[in-house]
Design a protein around this nucleic acid. Structure first.
Length: 610
DNA sequence: CTTAGGG
DNA sequence: CCCTAAG
């Protein structure tokens, strides 16, 4: 059971609301709390250590139960048209993390473990959330000066959030943060507003200490550059002009990768306990997509169910309020159904009132989930199409493949992503739909009015097949900064060449990236880093950044890794060009260098001659 | 099937 | 990104 503080938030100008403490049982029902529990909470609230530390959250409940029982419907009656916050309380690290029924909470366990093991500090981003909310002009008059939050590197205790939040449940005090850390606490906000500005977010927030790594690099960027970085990070454009906002998001976006990294690292090293097995990472900050992902392949021994939950962010310009709550898992009865928990309830329905066009299309293929008990996404990913096309090509070479007829229906070269609705996806690929998957596929090229000009130059390239008529757009999928970071981390962990490993462990959620893709990308990164380092001065002018959204810091890291893990071919060019003393490790490199290449050439030659 | 490397 | 060669 858990305690739920229930009520509605009060704005500064509103009358204060009352809060009730209720106990939520495992079956989802909740009853009013006992005196003791009430006192407990009151005590908690009264505790001077926590006086700053409580979010204005309306609801505070233990995560262990969050996965079950509670649907938005449960809350709706009692908390209508107000914010709802699910706030993870302090959990003992070994509370109810085992056992059959608890398998439902696997993903939450994973989160908890991730938090603990990955040392994810608990902070809170409510200020940001509210701020974004405010940026929309909702309450901008009510709250004028908001600190921009943890990512600014400011004192956590400094977050001023006075007006809108009558009950501040944020753990801003560092002591409290420490407490939380050690007790495997996590804060999950689930926020929902019921007016027409409705949105929902689920965030797991990272602390300031973890956010400042890229702060410096972002500091100097212009708004445009920041927007570009944003796009790279999240694979989506933003029209936000607010530098702080952008920086915050980018920073936090990058931060996620670190955590993800930690988690997967731990996962590999076996530090994970059974229950928490699997990877998870949560996109932090301001209601950005919360992603909980459990790649099934990383833990072969455990019967893992990939769970993938994702919620679309609410952009401050309120342009996007799409929610993609997506569950991938087996059809086991105990399986967590996030859609029921969050999306299938009133939340999703509410959203459906005002669906964006993208959402309509997106949901239209996210819906079908009926193939053999597992969610079989009917999105035929670009790669899948490619595969299909490939096989098709072999069989019917002379004729135009059926798929392409659909693809080029309008001559613009934009493929119709939903032309085929086939359950062809293997379980392994189920998790491939990331937040940008289809949308970027759809809008990322050419048709996007906002950009695609200053893009990485290689998107809208069309590839012309030799004998076959007509050009077809390359199956390009933009590499987001996140992915690049993942790749870099992967290389740093496993070295060059183990692309499959990296793919499996770090890119399991994105099936569209093959190991070959990773390798290619790494090659490109090396090239980019080389070029970047060579001419630093030009970079400063930001113009070059337009063509290279990869932050310098990232490229620098690539460079470092390039030295540690020399890439076979790239190394050679470096060797020749720059007679740097750095080339020492090359000697001991395990790479298959020029010799191998020559051998191959020779062999190839021989073959051709023969 | 995976990696390396050229296109 | 695509394709191919090699292990």
């Amino acid at each position: 059971m858990m305690n739920v503080l229930e009520g509605t938030p009060s704005t500064s100008s509103e009358t204060s609301k009352t809060y009730k403490l209720v106990r939520v049982e495992r079956d989802g029902s909740f009853i009013h709390a006992s005196e003791d529990e009430l006192n407990e909470v009151e005590h908690l609230l009264a505790d001077p250590r926590n006086d700053k530390g409580f979010m204005d959250g309306v609801l505070c409940l233990d995560l262990e139960n969050a996965g079950k029982g509670l649907t938005m419907d449960d809350f709706q009656g009692s908390v209508d048209c107000s914010q709802i916050k699910l706030n993870g309380g302090v959990l003992d690290s070994d509370t109810n993390l085992d056992g059959g029924e608890d398998s439902k909470y696997e993903f939450l366990d994973g989160m908890l473990h991730g938090v603990k093991e990955g040392d994810l500090l608990v902070s809170d981003d409510l200020a940001n959330t509210c701020n974004d909310f405010l940026l929309d002009g909702e309450f901008s008059d009510k709250v004028a000066d908001l600190d921009y939050g943890p990512c600014e590197g400011s004192d956590l205790g400094n977050l001023g959030l006075d007006s809108n939040c009558s009950l501040d449940m944020r753990y801003r005090d560092k002591n409290v943060v420490e407490t939380l850390k050690s007790s495997t606490a996590i804060v999950v906000e689930l926020e929902s507003a019921c007016d027409q500005n409705e949105f929902s977010t689920a965030t797991v927030v990272v602390p300031e200490s973890a956010c400042d790594q890229n702060e410096f690099a972002l500091q100097k960027m212009t708004i445009r550059e920041l927007q570009e970085a944003f796009r790279s990070t999240f694979g989506r454009n933003t029209s936000v002009k607010d530098k702080q906002w952008l920086k915050r998001h980018i920073t936090c976006g990058l931060q996620d990768l670190t955590e993800f990294d930690n988690v997967s690292c731990l996962s590999e090293s076996g530090n994970y306990s059974n229950e928490g097995e699997g990877n998870m990472f949560c996109r932090s900050g301001d209601g950005f997509p919360l992603r909980i992902h459990r790649p099934s392949m990383s833990m072969p021994d455990i019967k893992t169910r990939p769970v993938y939950l994702e919620m679309e962010e609410m952009l401050p310009d309120r342009k996007v309020s799409v929610t993609s709550v997506l569950e991938v898992g087996s059809g086991a009865p105990g399986n967590l159904n996030m859609e029921n928990r969050l999306g299938g309830g009133s939340l999703l329905q509410k959203r459906q009132r005002k669906p964006t066009r993208r959402y309509i299309e997106e949901s239209s293929f996210l819906k079908p989930r009926s193939c053999g008990g597992r969610l079989e996404l009917s999105i035929t990913s670009s790669r899948d199409k490619r595969m299909l096309a490939k096989s098709h090509k072999r069989k019917a070479f002379g004729s135009t493949p059926l798929l392409y007829q659909q693809d080029s229906f309008d001559g613009s070269g934009i493929q119709a992503p939903f032309g085929l609705h086939v359950c062809k996806r293997r379980p392994k690929e189920e998790t491939s739909t990331s937040e940008h998957d289809s949308e970027e596929y759809q809008y990322g090229f050419g048709s996007s009015p906002s950009e695609s000009q200053d893009e990485t130059s290689d998107d809208s390239v069309t590839r012309r097949r030799n004998g076959k008529g007509g050009g077809r757009r390359k199956h390009h999928r933009l590499w987001t900064l996140s992915e690049v970071m993942k790749l870099i981390d992967g290389v740093s962990q496993y070295g060059v060449g183990r692309w499959t490993e990296i793919k499996r462990l770090l890119f399991s959620s994105s099936a569209y990236r093959t190991s070959v893709d990773l390798k290619d990308k790494w090659r490109n990164l090396l090239r980019a880093s080389g070029a970047q380092v060579k001419s630093k001065r030009q970079v400063e002018q930001g113009r070059k950044q337009a063509t290279c959204p990869i932050p310098l810091a990232v490229l620098r890291r690539v460079n470092e890794l390039a030295i540690i893990f020399p890439y076979p071919r790239e190394r050679k060019s470096k060797f020749v060009n720059a007679s740097e003393p750095v080339a020492t490790p090359v000697a001991s490199s395990p790479s298959t260098g020029p010799s191998n290449r020559c051998g191959r050439v020779t062999r190839q030659h021989r073959k051709n001659l023969a």
